[in-house]
Design a protein around this nucleic acid. Structure first.
Lengths: 177, 177
DNA sequence: ATCATATTGTTGACTAGGACAACAATTCCC
DNA sequence: GGGAATTGTTGTCCTAGTCAACAATATGAT
């Protein structure tokens, strides 16, 4: 009992077309390299489409923030630190679902770039209290401006209804374990 | 993935906060270990939520297909080959947005497991005509059954409206390059 | 107070994914 | 025939993600 009962439409969607010969190609016409085939069993699976969109969105984000050399992961880390000054690495990792070891190296790079600091926690000798340096704050501000431009482009590309539907549906997916 | 949803039901309440707490502790006491903090600037960004859901979906897919040891990428490759027997690696790569070099190594592993074959293309000496072996066909059939179970679980977890909205919004061709 | 247990941050090692350059073989097309 | 393009392949690099181990520190039961 596949779940597609309600939303099936089965496979009629993506019927790939073989381009006709000699449409409008650059100087040397040859077999179309952009040809796309039938997705087959992938058509009923949400994960595939989510993945494709996610990759596209991240690539656009990376392109847009390239002048600052801030990756999506770095942006998320800076944002959460900025919104929760003094939090620990464990809390940060829990918030963003980044594993401890991975987070250590992420923070190392940000610290080397003088964007964040690891202060000793007065209450707990094991923890570090994380916060942005002044440089980190201004960098994050610039990053947020670019990220907003990225988001605006995303909305333009998807269209308002689709963007809104996605935002609505994606917020707070109850997931654990 | 940490239990994010259990605490942060209100997305709007998240943007206030961060008033003047001390550097390493909230005024009212120690933060709990599993606590989740404010997402800050991430809250308006679609990419973050897409990413979180995509990770969750893939992890569930991997768990569900673990008995067959078929990854999402491998499943997509087998599905497209099955639906387009004899296609070339270039066409397969274009269809799934997998780069040539990466696809070569993906196919190497599947070929070593006797799930696919690379036949010489009669028309073009450079190409390989890809197809599933009998073992590959039965494996894919089993994988599709498990993938459908995964999909059903996904629908149950998200709820019908949200699942349907996502499928609707994601399915159309809007992403490329 | 003591001792087992848990948490925090860190390092090392390993696997996958993705990007890019170079290359040989082949095909296209003028 | 010969230059240009395509196809598959290999090599190399870098980032992500996972896991195990470890030292330092904190916690809690007794």
């Amino acid at each position: 009992m596949p779940p597609r009962a309600a939303f099936s439409r089965t496979t009629t969607a993506a019927r790939a077309t073989r381009a006709s010969m000699s449409a409008d190609k650059p100087a040397s016409g040859r077999r179309k390299a952009g040809a796309v085939s039938d997705l087959g069993a992938l058509n009923g699976h949400l994960g595939y489409f989510i993945r494709r969109l996610q990759i596209w969105v991240f690539q656009d984000f990376i392109r847009t923030l390239a002048p600052l050399e801030i990756s999506p992961a770095q942006f998320s880390v800076l944002s959460v630190i900025n919104a929760n000054e003094g939090l620990s690495q464990a809390e940060l990792g829990n918030t963003l679902a980044i594993e401890r070891a991975r987070l250590v190296r992420l923070l190392n790079r940000l610290q080397k770039r003088r964007l964040i600091e690891r202060l000793p926690s007065s209450a707990d000798g094991r923890r570090h209290a994380l916060r942005l340096t002044p440089i980190g704050q201004t960098t994050l501000k610039q990053a947020m401006a670019l990220a907003d431009r990225h988001e605006a482009g995303l909305l333009a590309k998807l269209g308002e209804e689709r963007y809104g539907a996605l935002m609505e549906a994606l917020r707070d997916p109850s997931a654990s374990s």
